[in-house]
Structure formats: structure tokens, C-alpha cells
């Protein structure tokens, strides 16, 4: 066999191995993003559950205000990142309304059940921040791969596009602070 053909075959083999390895790297990055995205789902669901419990407790004290203050937040499976952001934003708004409302009911502020729920929401938000940071960290690594040549060429051939970050609301960028 002429030497030129052997060289071409070796080069082709190197290319195939390289292609497979880069392709796997990109696939792994996508899997990590999906995993961390489900972490956000779990944290959002927990936040929703605690918030619902808080609303139930508040309803007992502020019966006449319940309909005007609290919109129904909907969570469902398979939400897009934008929908998750929207749901999270709605929950934050509801929580803000709750905090304002609680100021008018001193007996509610001293309710042990409500205090525990406030601590729970702080912890749940801490988990949500962790999930968000982990997701964004994975997205950042993936997006970096997509703009780095020659990985970018393979990503393009596989139809991969940049992923959106799960942005933090301005108030959530700092550690959670709740006055108890």
C-alpha cells in the first residue's frame, strides 16, 4: 500500500477519534445542563410548596385580603427556562406582598408556624440560588465551548446553540436576609 494512503488513513483515524471525543465532551456538557436544570425545577417546586403553606397560614389571619393579593402561580413539568424565570418572579412578588401584609398583623409575625415557614423559605431560596449557580456555571462552560474553535465547528454541525442563563433577580443576588 502506498505510504501516502497509510498517512491519509492515519490522519482520518485521528480525525475520527478527535471528532468523537469532542462530540462526547459537548454531549456531556448538555447532559450536565439538563441535570442542573432539573435541580432548578426541584428548588422551584419546594419554593412553591412552602409559599403555598405560608399563604394558607396568612389566609387564617387576613381572610378579606386573600383574593386581591395572591395570584395563582402555575408550575408544570417541561417548562422552558423563560417560563421558569416567570414562575420564580411571580413567587418573589407574592412573597414580597406577604411580607408587607404580615407587617399589619403582629400576631401573625409571632406565630411559631409562620416563623418556621419563613426559615424554610430562606433555606429553599438558598437551595434555589445553589441550583441557579450550578446551572449557570454549566451553561457558561458549554457556551465557552461553542465559541472556541474548532469545537465550535462540531457544535455547529450538531445544531447546538448557546443556552440561556437563569438570571438572578437583583434582590436575590445577595445572600438571603429575612428579619425574624
Amino acid at each position: 500500500m502506498p505510504i501516502i494512503i497509510i498517512i491519509l488513513l492515519v490522519l482520518a483515524l485521528i480525525f475520527v477519534i478527535w471528532y468523537i471525543s469532542v462530540s462526547n465532551k459537548l454531549n456531556r456538557a448538555v447532559v450536565k445542563i439538563d441535570e442542573s436544570s432539573s435541580g432548578i425545577d426541584v428548588a422551584l417546586t419546594k419554593r412553591y410548596d412552602v409559599l403555598t403553606k405560608m399563604i394558607d397560614v396568612v389566609k387564617g389571619y387576613a381572610k378579606h385580603e386573600k383574593e386581591t393579593l395572591f395570584e395563582i402561580i402555575k408550575l408544570r413539568e417541561g417548562m422552558t427556562m423563560d417560563e421558569k424565570k416567570e414562575a420564580n418572579k411571580s413567587m418573589s412578588e407574592t412573597l414580597e406582598k406577604l411580607n408587607v401584609l404580615v407587617e399589619n398583623y403582629p400576631e401573625l409575625k409571632s406565630n411559631e408556624n409562620y416563623k418556621t415557614l419563613q426559615q424554610s423559605i430562606a433555606d429553599v431560596e438558598e437551595h434555589l440560588q445553589a441550583a441557579r449557580r450550578l446551572y449557570n456555571s454549566n451553561v457558561s462552560l458549554f457556551n465557552q465551548l461553542l465559541v472556541t474553535f474548532p469545537t465550535s465547528a462540531i457544535a455547529k454541525s450538531k445544531g447546538m446553540i448557546k443556552k440561556d442563563f437563569f438570571e438572578a433577580e437583583e434582590t436575590k443576588k445577595e445572600d438571603v436576609k429575612i428579619d425574624l
Binding site: S36, E126, Q129, A130, A131, R133, S137, D175
Partner: peptide
Amino acid sequence: DEHDAFYILTPS
């Protein structure tokens, strides 16, 4: 678990 690492090691 990566999530717990991010949960404990906050930016602060």
C-alpha cells in the same frame, strides 16, 4: 453532590 457544594459554598 455538586448541588450541595453550591448550596454550602455560597459566594459570600
